[in-house]
Amino acid sequence: MSTHVEGSTDLKYVSDEAFIDTGVRKVVSKGNWQQQYMSLRSFPEGDRNCYKIGVTTGTKYLIRASFFYGNYDGEGMPPTFDLYLGASLWDSVKTSSSSDFTIDPEIIHVPQKNHIHICLVKTSHGIPFISAIELRPLDNSTYQAQTGSLALLDRLDTGVSTWTR
């Protein structure tokens, strides 16, 4: 299994080969991106393709799925598809043909089993693909919710700017 550490974040990435047995690995030739965006797995076969990833039951995780189209297929037609966490719809992914645009839905989730399923589901337009999946364990005292998972709506930087008076 191949691995790499992203220099700008010190995050370790591993190949997805141990977590799924469907799909086709493709290379993105456009742009000067972090390594995890320079290849992807597309799913031309089947309507639903799922990763099975081992986790620790009861541990809170930040889960991020990343999508960078980069015209990897030469079609210039970025796909739209659904992203599921288990049986629950997580997000509808609408990718872009822009060479500087990634889609990065995030969710905070506490698994009830020792694995999770992250699934890509065909809708009406194009072939689903994924660039990266990140799982980061969190302190269980952060991001309290009464039930279910917490999905990212928006992230804003409200810090002080350098031009304040």
Rank of each mutant, 00 (worst) to 15 (best):
M1Y: 12
M1C: 09
T3Y: 12
H4M: 09
S8P: 00
V14E: 15
D16L: 05
F19N: 08
K26S: 12
V27S: 09
V28H: 02
V28G: 00
S29R: 09
K30W: 07
G31Y: 07
N32G: 04
W33V: 02
W33T: 01
Q34C: 04
Q35C: 04
Y37E: 06
R41M: 02
R41C: 10
F43H: 03
D47P: 06
D47F: 02
N49I: 05
K52L: 05
V55W: 08
V55A: 01
T56L: 10
T56P: 00
T57A: 13
K60E: 02
I63T: 12
I63S: 10
R64N: 08
A65H: 01
A65W: 02
Y69K: 07
G74P: 09
E75I: 02
G76W: 00
M77I: 12
F81L: 10
F81V: 05
L83V: 09
L83I: 13
S88F: 03
W90L: 14
S96E: 01
S96N: 09
S97Y: 00
S97A: 13
S98E: 14
S99F: 14
D100T: 15
F101Y: 15
D104W: 00
I107K: 03
I108M: 04
I108E: 03
I108G: 00
H109Y: 12
V110D: 04
P111W: 07
N114F: 03
I116G: 06
I118S: 04
C119Q: 05
T123C: 01
H125E: 14
G126T: 03
P128Y: 08
P128A: 10
F129S: 03
I130P: 00
S131N: 09
A132G: 10
A132Y: 04
L138T: 08
L138M: 13
S141Y: 00
Y143K: 01
Y143Q: 02
Y143S: 06
A145L: 08
Q146W: 00
T147I: 05
G148F: 03
S149R: 06
S149M: 08
L150K: 12
A151S: 15
L153G: 11
L153C: 00
R155S: 12
L156M: 12
D157M: 03
T158R: 11
T158L: 14
G159W: 02
G159V: 08
G159E: 08
V160I: 15
S161H: 06
T164E: 13
